[in-house]
Structures are given as C-alpha cells and as structure tokens.
C-alpha cells in the first residue's frame, strides 16, 4: 500500500532525533489520533541549518516527518513556510488516501516549529498556528483539509 519512497523513509528515516539547543520546537497531533510529530529546528540568519524530528505514529507519519525535514533543510524560513502537505506527499510518490492527514501533520509540524522560533525571538508572524488541525476529528474541525488529494 505504500510507495517505495515511503517505505525507504520509514525504514531509514532521515534526521531522527533531538536538537539540544534548538531555535524552534513544534509538536502537533495527539495520541488520540495515533500520530504525534515533534520537530526541532536550528536556524541561522533566517536559514534552517538543521532539522530533526521525533514521531509517534504509523509508517506514513514517520516517512512524512522524515521527508519534511529533508525538504526544509537549507531553506530560508520563507521558503520553508511555502512547503505544503502536497509537496511532502509528492516527494514521497504519494500516500494512500487514509494517510493524507500524516502529510498535513508534517506541514503543521514545520509551521509549529517556525511559530515557536518567532515567538522566542520576538518576531512578528503573519501566520498563526492554532494547534490541532482536526485531521483526526478529535477537535471537531474535520473541514480544515482536503483529504481527497491522495493517490
């Protein structure tokens, strides 16, 4: 059911771990949904120089976290903000429909970590991250995402 790329990123996840002196840390999802992603960013001069993650979740959750960290490393904050769940999904050659929410979580983990970075550095933010995305229905906001753009 998973593409080879997804399996590769699940079996050999890139950038697993913590960054002790991270500049931004974001955690999204909840145990109720079965997926939690935590992302750590090291940011220098507006550029993401390192990204690491820890994930509790299924194969797709691990793979999307891994791919998300790969996609944002070396990018500026602005560029990282432009990365959507679709981009994560495409980079993995697609996800089964039931797993699209994992890619949404990955996008949100990036957003949450950047939000934390801005908050710590007193920077203004034009995007606000509001916590749970509603992917699991746990917070009653199922209308938030288009879940039909999977494979």
């Amino acid at each position: 059911m998973y593409s080879e790329k997804v399996m590769d990123h699940f079996m050999n996840p890139r950038n697993v771990g913590e960054i002790e002196d991270a500049d931004g840390v974001g955690q999204v999802g909840n145990a109720k949904c079965g997926d939690i992603m935590k992302m750590y960013l090291k940011i220098e001069d507006g550029v993401i120089v390192d990204a690491k993650f820890k994930t509790f979740g299924c194969g797709a959750a691990v793979a999307t976290s891994s791919m998300a960290t790969e996609l944002i490393k070396g990018k500026t904050i602005k560029e990282a903000e432009m990365i959507t769940n679709k981009a994560v999904m495409e980079a993995l050659d697609g996800l089964p429909p039931a797993k699209v929410h994992c890619s949404v979580l990955a996008e949100e983990a990036i957003a949450a970590a950047l939000q934390d970075y801005r908050a710590r550095h007193g920077l203004d933010s034009d995007s606000t991250y509001e916590g749970c995305s509603g992917c699991c229905g746990g917070c009653g906001r199922l209308d938030q995402h288009d879940e039909n753009n999977g494979e």
């Binding site: 935590k38 820890k54 994930t55 509790f56």
Partner: peptide, 8 residues
C-alpha cells in the same frame, strides 16, 4: 521508542 516523542 528512540524516535517517539512520547517516550522522550
């Protein structure tokens, strides 16, 4: 567990 934020 080594990659689980819950375990961390």
């Amino acid at each position: 567990r080594s990659m689980s934020p819950l375990y961390e």
